[in-house]
Amino acid sequence: MRAGLSTLPDTAEELAYELLAPLGNRWRHTAGVAARAAELAAPLEIDRDVLVAAAWLHDIGYAERTVVTGFHPLDGARHLERLAWPAAIIGLVAQHSGARFVAAVRGLAEELAAYPDDSGLISDALTYADQTVGPDGRRVTAGQRHDEMLRRHGPASWNALVDHVRLPHLRGVTERVEHRLALAGAPGR
């Protein structure tokens, strides 16, 4: 740990940097998601430390040394479990952005189910942050992110195969979070 780091988000940022900085856009995306999560915590009245730490860690399963199954939410959660991170953060990483839909078609549903699915506002906030930041770390709409993801992964990808069930889930998350932000007087997107 770098000198002066004392909070969960700081420690998460350091681990994410160590694992993802060499991956270019993956690091830029992660930093953007963490910044977006930090903005969402107060207006949504959720635990900032847990949300921001999970945002920093949500894509660590892409790092070469974490890859076991090739499914980044599961690989990231397993890596965090080995490092004894809090269960709430591990569960958020495992379940972010509708991971359960992709896990089902990849034959990994049972393995993913070993990690708790909060399914509450903090989970929605992480997914919303992930789905409103593009690969280069810039803010995008959830629709733009969805379209970009399908183009990047391709029409035969796991994501495309489950889009008919995952997209309604992601739209529901977006609607719930943006509604809560509006109630709080905070801007969406």
Rank of each mutant, 00 (worst) to 15 (best):
W27H: 10
E13Q: 14
A109N: 04
R78G: 14
N25H: 15
A34R: 06
T141N: 06
I90T: 00
Y115H: 01
A113V: 02
S123R: 12
L51D: 04
R152I: 14
E39L: 15
H96N: 11
A21V: 12
G185S: 07
R65T: 15
A54K: 03
L121D: 08
M1L: 13
R100Y: 08
G185E: 09
V102Q: 08
L80Y: 00
D130H: 09
P43M: 10
Q95Y: 01
Q95T: 06
Y17N: 10
A34N: 09
L8T: 06
V133D: 03
A129C: 13
E110P: 02
G76C: 01
I46K: 13
L112Q: 01
L167C: 03
L167D: 06
V93I: 02
I122C: 05
D130A: 12
A53T: 04
V68E: 11
R48H: 14
R171Q: 14
L150V: 15
I89V: 15
R152H: 12
P73I: 00
V133K: 03
A99M: 01
Y115I: 00
S97Q: 09
D117A: 15
V165E: 13
A125N: 10
G4Q: 09
Y62M: 13
E45T: 06
L57A: 06
L40R: 04
Y115S: 00
S119Q: 15
A34L: 10
T141I: 12
D49V: 08
R189H: 12
F71I: 02
I122L: 10
A88R: 15
A113I: 02
G137P: 07
E178F: 10
A94M: 04
L161P: 02
H72K: 08
M1W: 11
L44N: 07
M149W: 05
G143K: 11
